Amino acid sequence: MKSIPYGRQTITEDDIKAVVDVLQSDFLTQGPHISTFEQKFAEYVGSKYAVAVSNGTAALHLCALALGVDEKTRVITTPITFAASANCIKYCGGEVYFADIDPKTFLLDINKVKELIESKPKGYFHGIIPVDFAGNAVNLEEFKKLADEHNLWIVEDACHAPGGFFKDSHNIDQYCGNGNFADLSIFSFHPVKHIATGEGGMITTNSKDLFDKLTLLRTHGITKNATEFKNSQETVAQGPWYYEMQTLGYNYRLTDFQAALGVSQLTRANDNLSRRRELAKRYDEAFKNSTVATPISVEGNAYHLYVIKVKNRLALYEHLRSNQIFAQVHYVPVHLMPYYQEQGFKKGDFPLAEAYYDECLSLPMYQSLTEQDQQFVIDTVLSFTER
């Protein structure tokens, strides 16, 4: 029996050719395909700048560094996300706070965030990291108003949502990562994501200052731009070979062959997104009269995941696996991880997130999923849940 995973990359002959061409070229890393990928991705999401990095976690870490997160920094995020959304603050010594989710969208609840902010003295918090969970875009216009009121920055974790958007107050599509409301946005190119490069990530912004900091931080804090040198010739001999490490940075670079794969995948991004939305619509229709709870359907959802809620989640999970359908759970609430429990969080702190976790299950969702395989998934779910 053929197995059906919850997510899968699609690699075409054009993708393979793009990678092979780079492997046969002079540059495997730090070559011309990096800037090409950055430019094309910025155009895709509508931002001014994009910085390619080694993965989504590196992207989050660099955002925290560029924003000056340190041991005095306090940041709010959602417990329903991958741990990296919170960990990036801890990497820099900062303090993480969680706010509960909206049970209808599974997204960070702005009202809970507002309550948390107002429960502390003015100036207590410094930033918010909303997550476009499962591909459903956070309404960043609303978060921006709240952030401006309290002088907070916003980092949008858009790993699940390239091509996703929300409707603003003027009914304009605001695409994830366009920089109109968030200071920085980050994306991941892990194989199960819309655009796959194996590993890899991207940061987008409309701030030239943040862009410059990010490009320095991702390459050991080193610059080769003579106009930016701080040393004089009297201090150290300089020539075409000269470079300066001006801050403590990291090696968070992307390779050229990954970038070439990303550029090739970008050419199909809109088609792939349309296919995901078609699959989601079929799931919606199939489950509308069942006991299966489906995600709220919004126009701009990028559907990285298709999450259902069922009362007997473990039994259904095992039933699907017995039929070679490898559904997954996204995510174990971050505040219940032992590391964060050691920070003082405990079960019962965020009841809506915990209730979501007790019933959530991610069904197969990827652009190459055939209608026949999807129907098998649907039939298998319904045959079990309607018993």
Rank of each mutant, 00 (worst) to 15 (best):
G249E: 08
G164L: 07
M245T: 11
V332S: 15
P162D: 10
V192K: 05
L67N: 00
I378K: 00
A327I: 02
T291A: 12
E13C: 13
T223V: 07
H150M: 14
D21R: 09
Q372M: 08
I4T: 03
I154Q: 00
K309G: 00
F187L: 09
I110S: 07
T235V: 12
Y243I: 09
H33I: 07
E234P: 06
L146D: 08
R387E: 11
A226W: 13
T235R: 12
R253L: 14
N301P: 05
D358Q: 14
Y242G: 10
Q9I: 07
Y317M: 14
K309T: 00
R275P: 04
L28Y: 14
A158M: 08
V292W: 01
S383I: 05
E95P: 02
Q39D: 14
N301Y: 04
F41Y: 08
K288S: 12
N231R: 09
Q324D: 15
I378W: 02
I11P: 07
E371M: 11
K48R: 15
V75G: 06
I325Y: 10
G123E: 12
T247R: 12
Y306H: 00
A293P: 07
P103C: 02
L28T: 13
E354L: 07
Y306W: 02
E234F: 12
A355R: 03
K311W: 04
V69I: 09
L352P: 07
S232R: 08
G300F: 06
E71L: 13
G179Q: 10
Y340Q: 04
G164V: 06
A226S: 12
P130Y: 02
L248F: 15
P240F: 10
L261K: 02
S264L: 01
R282P: 01
E142K: 14
K72E: 13
D212Q: 11
G179W: 09
A355I: 03
I128W: 03
A315T: 14
R313D: 09
Y340D: 06
Q341K: 13
S383N: 13
T227P: 09
E38R: 07
V236R: 10
K122P: 10
Q372F: 06
Y243A: 14
N301G: 10
S383C: 04
Y356N: 09
V75C: 05
Q24F: 05
L369M: 06
N272G: 15
K193G: 11
P338A: 10
Q9Y: 08
T235D: 11
P5K: 07
K2E: 13
H304F: 14
S362E: 13
F345T: 04
F106R: 08
Y252N: 08
I11M: 11
V22S: 07
R8L: 15
S274I: 14
T385I: 11
V138F: 05
P130Q: 10
L316W: 07
S322N: 15
S274T: 15
F37N: 03
T219P: 06
Y339P: 02
C63F: 05
T255N: 13
H194R: 15
R276C: 12
V381K: 02
K346S: 12
R218F: 10
A302E: 01
F187T: 04
Q343S: 04
C88G: 04
L352H: 12
A99M: 05
L273C: 06
I34M: 13
T380G: 11
P32H: 09
A226C: 09
A237H: 13
S264P: 00
L352M: 12
V307S: 12
K104M: 10
